[in-house]
Design a protein around this nucleic acid. Structure first.
Lengths: 327, 327
DNA sequence: CTGAAAGCGCTTACAG
DNA sequence: CTGAAAGCGCTTACAG
């Protein structure tokens, strides 16, 4: 079923059908009506691929996350998808994994789908392979990176102030009387490195020693294992800041099992203020990295950049502390 | 950059370039080499929309879930997406919400994108509006429904045996000495109705009274509130089966706060065996609804149906019980 | 207000 | 082994 079929049925030309479908002005009311009737009676559904071909716009946007199953990433992707859906864009959402060559592959894939814009969610995309792939395959497509920076003329950035967030968390713990504050990190993404920097800065300013575990598996059990290791290594630890809530949730669980009292023996701070923070027992205090604001900003920038190819903007949003029962 | 540009550059025709790109046999090795060189040097990326137009295949599949932020749904979508990615298909993943007209709208949307297949994840799609939309807009497209049934010639089904799962859970609780077993349900999707039926069947066979809360908000706090209501209504309750883990996680939390001992005072059973079951304290026993198996089966059926339009299959997979600390 | 024609970027049957 | 031409389903500038 094409517009030619409809045209034949009604006795007009395909041009006219096209105009009716696209609500162009300057069409006889009677004609319009007849065409609309035929359209709806035959359940006509326009072929967006053909339309996109002539319009030079797929009306699709690409969204890359490193792990679609990560609650935090998916929330961001969801907000952006919703935003663009209202404007008639479909989202091609991919799980780009953590392999850099793989990420580049997805960018090539999205380029073959001729997406009108690209969103990269997560600082993990801040690397040379991705940069090169964008330069090669999408040099003119508006790109916005959530939580990372890529120095390319068509790439905008929206980042949270991770350093300040971690810094504030440590200061808060210090003010609560904690003096042996540790940091547990899952991996060394640019974003986590900023958290680490904030942690170290606060420790140094407040005259405390660093107690760090810099790598662990990004899961509940990974967080539990790292916490276990930490309290063995530093028996005097009285507070822990985690790079993500997932780890902290595992930590809460482990410490309770080991008979620690939270927050009196050990206080805990997660990061991201994710839904997990509400189901741990006790409930988790967390650094809010402002996911909603970041996503909204991404969507706004991209909307503008699609209109005006030269539009580009970099913004940073401060984190806030959400205090619950673990501090 | 089109295949014509490449053709001109190399001094061959577009047909030849197309043949090289598609690795068709019967091309002079020298020619092939020259074309391949030009292709890679200019970072050529084929226009899939144009290709799809002539091939009458978008090489995209549509995936509808009712809430993309639901961990359980997204896991299923993820598995299916991965499966098809390997075969060169992109997924159009949408959040169809719980409004039936809205769902129909998404089906129309996916039809305009000419997806080669459609996956519906969740029994919530089992309704007349969806059925009509498929009949009108995708009458020949292979569709597979995860956890629901739609009586249409192009729709296959993969469902878990929710009734048996709930039944088994109740029997298990009975064998543990529980005699006042309640059921808390979030909503009346077809799938949840099957769980309810299994619960009632077991109660009736074992001579126990029904204690039910049939609707509550699908969230931790919704589960907590419903649990609170339940223990007020029926102070003698000694076990609760929840229709989803999310509710149970909220329930665990509430009961602990209220001073109940789990599982001695009240035993709890969730459903879905989701990651949440591992972070509650105590860890949650749960009915495993076999998400992985369901998703694999969906992908298999769809792969076949894309090849052979007449292929259709309905299967059911039994649930199993995963016992942890709440029972 | 309406239609014929060209063109978007591909593929493939046909001819050589 | 290779190319010219037609066609996939649309839109739009042009002419009337």
């Amino acid at each position: 079923m094409t517009i030619y079929d409809i045209a034949r049925q009604v006795g007009v030309s395909a041009s006219t059908v096209s105009r009716v479908i696209n609500k162009r002005p300057g069409i006889n009311a009677k004609t319009r009506e007849k065409v609309e009737k035929a359209l709806s009676e035959s359940n006509f559904s326009i072929n967006e691929a053909a339309k996109g071909l002539v319009n030079q716009s797929s009306r699709m946007i690409g969204i890359l996350v490193s792990d679609i199953r990560n609650q935090h990433h998916i929330e961001g992707a969801y907000m952006i998808e919703q935003h663009f859906l209202e404007k008639g864009y479909c989202s091609l959402l991919f799980n780009a994994g953590s392999d850099k060559e793989g990420m580049a592959g997805y960018i090539k894939l999205l380029s073959s789908r001729r997406v009108d814009a690209l969103v990269l969610i997560g600082s993990i995309f801040q690397n040379d392979e991705v940069m090169e792939a964008i330069g090669n395959y999408m040099p003119k497509v508006p790109v916005v990176m959530q939580n990372g920076i890529l120095d390319l003329p068509n790439v905008s950035s929206v980042v949270s102030n991770d350093e300040q967030g971690a810094y504030d968390a440590v200061v808060h713990l210090y003010n609560k009387g904690k003096r042996n504050i540790a940091f547990i990190n899952n991996n060394d993404t640019p974003s986590n490195l900023k958290k680490l920097a904030g942690y170290r800065k606060a420790c140094s300013e407040l005259g405390m020693k660093n107690r760090e575990i810099l790598r662990c598996e990004d899961s509940f059990s990974g967080g539990a294992a790292a916490t276990d290791e930490l309290v063995r290594m530093y028996p005097d630890v009285d507070a822990i800041l985690y790079s993500v809530d997932t780890l902290a949730a595992g930590g809460v669980r482990l410490l309770i099992d080991k008979g620690f009292t939270i927050p009196d023996d050990i206080a805990l701070f997660g990061t991201d203020n994710s839904p997990f923070a509400l189901i741990t027992n006790p409930r988790l205090s967390s650094v809010d990295t402002k996911l909603r604001e970041l996503s909204n900003a991404c969507a706004d920038i991209l909307s503008r950049a699609i209109e005006d190819r030269s539009y580009r903007k970099n913004i940073q949003i401060d984190c806030s502390l959400v205090l619950r029962e673990t501090t």
